[in-house]
Computed example of a mutant assay.
Amino acid sequence: MDSSVRVNAYWLREFLWATGWHIDADDHPLNRLNMENATSRALLCENYLIPELNDLSVVQQRMVKETLRYALNFFSKKEWEWYTQDALPDITDTPEEMFADLWGMLFPGEPWHLDSDEGYFRHDDREDALFLDRYRYGRF
């Protein structure tokens, strides 16, 4: 494989499913949060996303990080809707802004801006799951 950074939008979706909202959407604590405000976003990170990120292998963490970086730069509004549906309640009208805030909490001090998608290889494949053993045990 060449030196391209692989990204897969389904990895981002699987990572967001760590909230469990897709399982119990009607009575989930996230329903009491307003993703339009910074306090709610911080609670989402502190209570769900950071613990999940810390539980992933280094390889899986990189997969999530690079896919989110790519998404922040190149996803359309329709792609944001598609890959975040059933993962979070009504995120916002501007998901890029919300996820840029989340990036700052998940990867503090690391830039997410890209000038181009050069060096990235996007292959959205739901069968190439984030939680496959080869990624869990560090084989990318």
Rank of each mutant, 00 (worst) to 15 (best):
E97V: 14
A9M: 05
Q85D: 14
E36Q: 11
L102H: 01
A9D: 10
P89A: 06
L68C: 08
D24Y: 11
N8M: 10
Q85F: 15
L106V: 05
R13E: 13
N47P: 02
L30S: 05
Q85I: 14
G138E: 13
A18Y: 06
L106Y: 04
E79Y: 09
Y10C: 07
L106C: 02
E81R: 03
H28S: 05
L68H: 01
Q61Y: 09
P51T: 08
A71D: 10
P95N: 03
W21K: 00
T94H: 10
D55F: 14
E66L: 04
P111E: 08
M105G: 06
L102A: 05
E46I: 09
L30G: 05
A100C: 05
L33F: 10
R136Y: 10
F75T: 00
R134N: 13
L49I: 12
L33Y: 10
E118D: 14
R6D: 12
D26W: 13
M105W: 11
Y137Q: 01
L44P: 07
K78A: 15
L102N: 00
K65M: 09
S3A: 08
L132V: 14
H113F: 13
N31K: 07
T19G: 07
V5L: 08
L12S: 02
C45F: 12
G119S: 02
L88Y: 02
L132T: 13
Y10G: 05
D101N: 01
E118N: 04
F99A: 00
N54I: 11
K77H: 14
M105I: 10
R139V: 11
E96W: 09
Q61N: 04
L30D: 10
S76R: 00
Q85W: 12
T84G: 09
D117A: 06
P29D: 14
G138T: 05
E46L: 13
M63F: 08
Q85K: 06
D115N: 03
N54M: 13
Y137N: 04
P95F: 11
T67S: 04
F15M: 02
A25K: 00
A100D: 05
T39H: 07
S76G: 09
L44R: 02
A42R: 01
Q61P: 08
